[in-house]
Amino acid sequence: MLLASLLATLPAMVVSEAEASPINSAQTVIQPPADHHWVSNKNYPERSVDMCPLAGSLTEPGLYLTLVRWWPGYMSAPHTYITDRLCVVISGTWWCNSGDDFDPASCVPVPAGSFVRRVAGTPHYDGVIRDHAEPAIIAICGMGPVGYKLVDPSKPGWRPV
């Protein structure tokens, strides 16, 4: 009986005497959304696609993590990467397809919360259809450098849809 009574009061004793350590910004780096730095691609139309690098670099060796925001009415032209890309749709709906033939009508809608793996060396394209209400934000992780290559380099890397 004494042991049961002691065990019943133990959680309250531990909680009341515990103190949380203050967060160490050198050990845990937090960047709220208001502090994200979105950058438009100078080779693309305004409000077509933006990137927000969070860690690493697409062009340097090593792990990277970036956010990509596709605005409605634009898609990438078919292209490849030399490394896999792991993608999670954060918000909106991303429209994806594989292959080197650009056919937006055949794209698959990928809703928020979905995972997409872009396999190295395989042609693909993506973006947001014109009549969609909001942009799609995608978190993309992989190993750099990505070695971006257009299937048809005589055309721009973006397409209006």
Rank of each mutant, 00 (worst) to 15 (best):
L6Q: 13
A105S: 12
T28W: 01
R85T: 05
R117Q: 15
Y148F: 15
L54M: 05
G73P: 07
P32I: 14
N97L: 07
Q31K: 12
D50M: 08
N24D: 15
E17L: 05
H124Y: 02
T59K: 11
S76E: 03
S114E: 01
G144V: 02
M13P: 00
I129F: 15
W94K: 01
N97S: 15
W95G: 06
D152Y: 01
E46I: 14
I138L: 11
S114W: 04
P78F: 02
Y148L: 14
S16T: 14
H37G: 04
A55R: 01
P32M: 11
N41Q: 11
G92F: 00
T122F: 03
A120V: 13
E19M: 07
H37W: 03
V15L: 06
V89W: 01
S57A: 11
T66N: 12
V39F: 15
A112R: 07
T93K: 05
V68Q: 05
P33W: 08
L63N: 07
V88M: 12
A8R: 12
M75Y: 00
P123T: 07
S25K: 14
V14F: 11
W95K: 05
L58M: 14
S25F: 09
G113K: 06
P156G: 15
S91G: 10
M143I: 02
V89C: 03
K149E: 15
C52T: 04
L86Q: 10
W158K: 11
G144P: 05
G121Y: 04
N24E: 15
I30H: 07
A139R: 05
R47Q: 14
L67Q: 02
E134T: 12
A8I: 12
N43Q: 11
N41G: 09
A133Y: 01
S98W: 09
V146I: 15
C141E: 10
A120I: 13
P111E: 07
C141Q: 10
D126Q: 11
V49L: 13
I82Q: 15
V49S: 04
G144E: 09
G157M: 04
L6C: 10
N97M: 12
R117V: 13
P53D: 02
